[in-house]
Design a protein around this nucleic acid. Structure first.
Length: 546
RNA sequence: UGGGGUGUCGCCAAGUGGUAAGGCACCGGGUUUUGAUCCCGGCAUUCGCAGGUUCGAAUCCUGCCACCCCAGCCA
């Protein structure tokens, strides 16, 4: 974790620091709009913005970009705060809202009007769109473009005073209707919205647009490096224009990097909102979603997310990261300290015909390499359960599990041999009859037997029923089409099993476990029932060769 | 056909004129009572393509090609 990160933004920061005028360190900001939950793409930005100030010294603002009351709400600001905190970052006293600056923003707008650099336009939305021109053709000037400053000011004050309907007037910057950059064709700066704001209530009925707000807030907060994603590159000239045309003494540089692309994930808040609202997922924290809350509920440690963001790096290239990379980062963390235990996801009963006594108590380590985690007890008895997938009547080549006549070791216990297969009327295997070898006890094996493999098991007497949820990709394709969601969903994205877990697992207060040979699982805290979510499978090189 | 970006291994990504880091994935081999972990080894004569400059180019120049973003009173 100590290895120095190197990317074009950090190089730029190092260079700026060398220049010398950043005596108080650098200042960055993470500026979410409170209109949804944060996802792993935001985590990339959070790790960057908070990461660089940790590395180089300085501070990072958590600034809510709340200029559209129609879409924003208090519960989203709370979820965002808790997600940022959970990710391991601290904004200290630097919690702000764009709405904190509404007064200042307003007076800068009046300044622009007084300087003849902004005007009130009374065209309708459609008219504005139709006169904006196209990518190939210039737009045409609004007939209201040459209103006097006095008239503009009076109209703008009427807008502010609530004397106007929504859509009746907007404030526009007077720049250049024939600019090849569409953002410079007299962009709207303020619009009328008659809606209560989650913080300012009904104090305002005009709200500033992003392009006007963001750069000024950055300047006011003394942001030394305004980091944003590539789609804002075209907005940079406007960012600069606003700051150059108002009376403000600071002008942060906007630096763009590419957003995270992740296979099988959708990073559009609009689309995630739709998945939630249409009931395609359980909620914003559905474990199949790559939201921070979803990842947390699936059992992904925040450290893994931070490591993932560090490994993928920062560049300006469009990217589509493979999910295997995230999985690797998750296993890397969990491998170190998740207690091990046995859980049978899809149980198949096995009767040990030559075992008639009480269950025998056995001891097993909670972790093979981490003795500090101590030991647990489990039992072996006449009636046990093994994983249905660990038995094959007709085993493929190199099969190392149980099949008729074959022997296999039960982890931490004895070697057994399958003697008989019992099926139901449909020909489905419902029970195995087996014998165990008393001299093959784990750790004291004198049997001389050499089974090809080891499988996990749970004695009926030592088992606790648990619901086990195994997740797969939510989508069928690597790059899901957000406009055709219903055709993109994987019908098997979650499989729910009635499984069995060791009693010791049930009694442990750990949250993350490795169910041996099955994967890492996390106790679902959203229910009082005993439910485990599969965080990630174990890596598995086994592939039948026939 | 306008403007702004980006093109280095299957996926991320360093490299900024001195002769292609690293990680993931993958492929071997070793250890292993998790087909896990761990450990060793392999994996771009080549940097979108074509020319040019240079003793020397992924890095400089020219021309092409491909992909992404922009026509919200969203952010």
């Amino acid at each position: 974790m100590s290895k120095d990160l190197n990317d074009f933004i950090r190089s730029r920061i190092r260079a700026d620091l060398d220049e010398g005028d950043l005596s108080d360190g650098i200042v960055t900001r993470f500026p979410p709009e409170p209109n949804g939950f944060l996802h792993i793409g935001h985590a990339k930005s959070i790790c960057l913005n908070f990461g660089v100030t940790e590395e180089f010294g300085g501070s990072t603002y958590l600034r809510f970009d709340d200029t559209n009351p129609r879409k924003e709400s208090e519960n989203f600001v709370e979820s965002i705060k808790s997600d940022v905190r959970w990710l391991g970052f601290d904004w200290k006293d630097k919690l702000t809202f764009a709405s904190d600056y509404f007064d200042q923003l307003y007076s800068y707008a009046e300044q622009l009007i007084n300087d003849g650099k902004a005007y009130v336009c009374s065209l309708t939305t459609d008219e504005i769109r139709n006169t904006r021109g196209t990518l190939l053709e210039p737009g045409s000037d609004s007939p209201y473009r040459d209103r006097s400053s006095e008239e503009n000011l009076s109209l703008f004050r009427d807008m502010k005073a609530g004397k106007c309907e929504e859509g009746e007037h907007v404030l526009r910057a007077k720049i250049d209707m024939s600019s090849p950059n569409m953002n410079m064709r007299d962009p709207v700066l303020y619009r009328v919205i008659h809606a209560s704001h989650h913080r300012t209530g009904d104090d305002w009925c005009i709200y500033p647009m992003y392009d006007f707000t963001h750069c000024i807030c950055d300047a006011l907060e003394g942001i030394t490096h305004s980091l944003c994603t590539l789609e804002f590159e075209n907005h940079r000239p406007l960012y600069d224009w606003v700051l150059e045309n108002i009376d403000i003494n600071y002008h942060p540089p906007q630096i763009e990097f590419s957003r995270l692309g992740l296979e099988y994930a959708v990073m559009s808040k609009r689309v995630i909102t739709e998945l939630v609202n249409r009931g395609y997922v359980e909620g914003w924290d559905d474990p199949r979603l790559y939201t921070i809350a979803g990842l947390r509920r699936r059992g992904v440690p925040s450290e893994s997310i931070r490591n993932f963001c560090r490994r993928i790096g920062i560049s300006k290239q469009d990217n589509l990261v493979e999910t295997e990379y995230l999985d690797f980062c998750v296993r890397e963390e969990l491998e170190q300290d998740a207690p091990r235990g046995m859980a049978v996801i899809d149980p198949l009963r096995v009767i040990i015909t030559n075992f008639d006594e009480e269950d025998e108590v056995l001891t097993a380590a909670w972790h093979p390499k981490n003795p500090e985690l101590g030991n647990r007890h489990l039992t072996f008895g006449r009636e046990i359960y093994i994983e249905r997938a660990d038995f094959e009547e007709i085993p493929p080549k190199k099969y190392k599990r149980l099949s008729p006549g074959a022997i296999v070791r039960l982890r931490y216990a004895y070697i057994i041999r399958c003697d008989e297969v019992i099926k139901d009327g449909n020909g489905e295997v419902v029970e195995i009859r087996a014998t165990y070898f008393p001299d093959s006890k784990s750790g004291a094996d004198t049997s001389g037997l050499k089974p090809k493999g080891v499988i996990h098991f749970i004695s009926a007497a030592n088992s606790i029923a648990a619901e086990i949820r195994c997740y797969e990709h939510l989508f069928i394709s690597k790059v899901p089409n957000g406009d055709r969601l219903e055709n993109e969903l994987n019908p098997e994205s979650v499989r729910i099993y009635s499984g069995l877990i060791e009693r010791a697992l049930f009694e442990s207060d750990a949250k993350s476990f490795q169910f041996e040979r099955n994967g890492y699982f996390f106790r679902d805290e959203s229910t009082s029932r005993l439910v485990f979510n599969r965080t990630v499978t174990l890596r598995d090189k086994w592939k039948p060769t026939t």
